[in-house]
Structures are given as C-alpha cells and as structure tokens.
C-alpha cells in the first residue's frame, strides 16, 4: 500500500523526503558505477513483479517484494526501490509526489534490513535458505506495514483508526509475501543459485 498525496502532514512529508534522500545517496554510492545500469534493468523486473496480484480468499493482494529485492541486491536495494517508486508515481499515481519520501522509506528500509538478515543468516543448506527467504519476505512486509501505520498515525489521533486498518489489511499480504519469497528462493536455488550467494553489487569487494 502506498501513501498518496495529501495524507501526511507537510512536516512529515518533508522530513521523510530528506531522510530518504540521504539513504538514496548512500545506496547510490555503495553501488559500483559499472553495476548501475544493471540495477536499473533489474528495477524494471521488480516493478513488473510487484504488479502481480494473488487471490487471498475473497480479496486479492499484490506483491510488494521488498524482502526479495533486499536479498538479491543488498545495499543497492534502496536505489532500486527508489527508481521503482518514482516510475510508479510517474506512471500510475500509486503513491504521490509529496509522499514519495515517505513511501521510499517504508519500502526501502525493510528491504535493506531483509538484505542484511538474508546475507548473514542464509547459511548453506537449501532448507535454511528457503526458511530465511520466507522470514525476510514476511518480516520485511511486517516492518513495512508498521512503518506505514506509524506514518499514518503521525497525522494525529484521528488517524489511528485508519492506521490500525492498514495494519490489519497487511496480514494477508505478509502471509502471501512469505510464501512467494520461499517459493522464489527455492526456484532460484534450483535454477540459478549464484544469484543468492552474494548480492552482485558486492561481488567485486569479496
């Protein structure tokens, strides 16, 4: 779920924009110059994946995949998510112009965290990798939902009800996200396991 324009207090919108810009510059620096075009191309694929809808009971949820992006791209994940969100804002108005910083923060931070967790705890065995993948997928979504609720609640006491609803609405998303992440990791393990070894932007430093 992306925050649209006009919801956040102006101060919050400006503040999150500044913080996001900081993270974005850091992520840009961390990505080797040679790999920048690659991150751009991958971003398009992540973008397309995030348009996939899955049925959950009577409703349907769409994938967010911050966990997977984090696990695959490491520190560049923030950059990739920034590109994706700008495009989404440009093309579809999912997430508004003034709320771009806030949206970036609530997707990007969980991705970075998931990347860190996956990198350090993925282990060697397939089972563990799948499990950690699921945890990253689900965990990143929970984190993202909490940030969303927090940002919504920053609008004042009137918004607490909405924040709670947004949090509740993420329960199916967390489940689906964890499941899909596990499946994707298991697929990649069989087909192209090297993608999961090290985020490719880190490769040169290894």
């Amino acid at each position: 779920m992306h925050i649209s324009d006009g919801v956040l207090p102006t101060a919050v919108a400006l503040g999150t924009s500044a913080v996001s810009a900081g993270f974005l510059l850091w992520s840009l620096r961390r990505t080797p110059a040679d790999d920048l075009p690659k991150v751009a191309v991958l971003t398009s694929a992540f973008f397309v994946a995030s348009l996939i809808h899955l049925p959950f009971g009577p409703t349907s949820v769409h994938l967010l995949i911050p966990g997977l992006v984090g696990a695959l791209l490491g520190p560049s994940a923030f950059l990739a998510i920034a590109l994706g969100l700008v495009l989404q804002c440009l093309l579809f108005q999912f997430g508004g112009l003034t709320a771009l910083g806030a949206n970036l923060l609530l997707m990007g931070l969980p991705a970075l965290l998931a990347g860190l967790v996956f990198y350090h705890f993925k282990g060697r065995s397939k089972k563990q990798r799948i499990l950690v993948g699921a945890l990253c997928g689900g965990g990143a979504t929970i984190f993202s939902a909490l940030l969303l609720a927090l940002l919504l609640a920053s609008g004042g006491e009137d918004f607490i009800g909405v924040a709670k609803l947004a949090l509740l609405a993420h329960i199916p998303v967390v489940l689906v996200e964890a499941g899909v992440s596990a499946m994707v990791v298991s697929f990649l393990l069989k087909v192209k396991p090297e993608l999961l070894d090290i985020p490719f932007v880190l490769k040169e430093k290894m």
């Binding site: 994946a49 995949i65 899909v180 499946m183 994707v184 298991s186």
Partner: peptide, 10 residues
C-alpha cells in the same frame, strides 16, 4: 507464482 516470479528475475 513463485516459479513465475523467479523466472522473471532470472
């Protein structure tokens, strides 16, 4: 869907 997303990534 996991396969599909995975294949898209690969």
């Amino acid at each position: 869907v996991g396969n599909y997303v995975g294949m898209l990534f690969v």
